[in-house]
């Protein structure tokens, strides 16, 4: 329903706020699925930071959506096909909580069995992230850092150049 409101509204301010609401709702969904860590991230990043960043972008651009310049039929078709493919994909997924699902039988029992005496950290998610998958997390941190550097290069470089132009004039 929130997603519909996001699509329908013309005011970009309302869109930003509604996508924050959408993130909060998906965080609730993740809590129901017992993925508290992910829910935490979703609530903080999706509802918090990205809303602020969208508002920041809005302040730089304009507040209202322009009426679309072409017919919405083709995009609608693409979205419908993608959605149908995704729904079709979920048909093959194991049932929720199925103990024989691939995710439960591969490495998860190993981690759950080993982490109490090897790492002894009650939050197994942290144990896996920081220790068993330490390299992955290092890579993620590097990605976050690279993203920050990228934004910095793109945006603040532009500003400096513009200031120089102004001085030239």
């Amino acid at each position: 329903m929130t997603a519909f409101a996001v699509v329908r509204t013309q005011s970009l301010f309302a869109t930003a706020m509604l996508s924050g609401v959408f993130s909060l709702l998906s965080a609730l969904l993740l809590v129901t699925l017992d993925a508290v860590d992910v829910a935490f991230t979703e609530a903080a990043v999706g509802a918090g930071i990205s809303t602020v960043l969208m508002l920041g972008t809005l302040a730089l651009t304009s507040r209202f959506e322009r009426p679309p310049s072409h017919s919405p039929v083709i995009p609608l078709f693409v979205v419908l096909v993608t959605g149908a493919a995704l729904v079709y994909g979920t048909l093959d997924m194991p049932n929720f909580g199925d103990p024989n699902a691939p995710a439960q039988t591969h490495v998860a029992p190993d981690y759950i069995g080993r982490s109490p005496h090897e790492i002894d950290v009650p939050n197994i998610v942290t144990a896996i992230l920081a220790s068993y998958r330490g390299f992955d997390t290092l890579g993620e941190t590097a990605v976050v850092f690279t993203a920050g550097v990228g934004v910095l290069l793109l945006i603040s470089g532009l500003r400096r150049r513009r200031r120089k132009e102004k001085e030239d004039v």
Partner: peptide, 22 residues
């Protein structure tokens, strides 16, 4: 991880908001 994420998030925020708003 925490220090990097704080730094990057604040960096992005600064980068967006330090441009002159219209």
């Amino acid at each position: 991880v925490g220090i990097t994420v704080t730094g990057v998030m604040v960096t992005i925020y600064y980068a967006f908001t330090s441009r002159t708003p219209i």
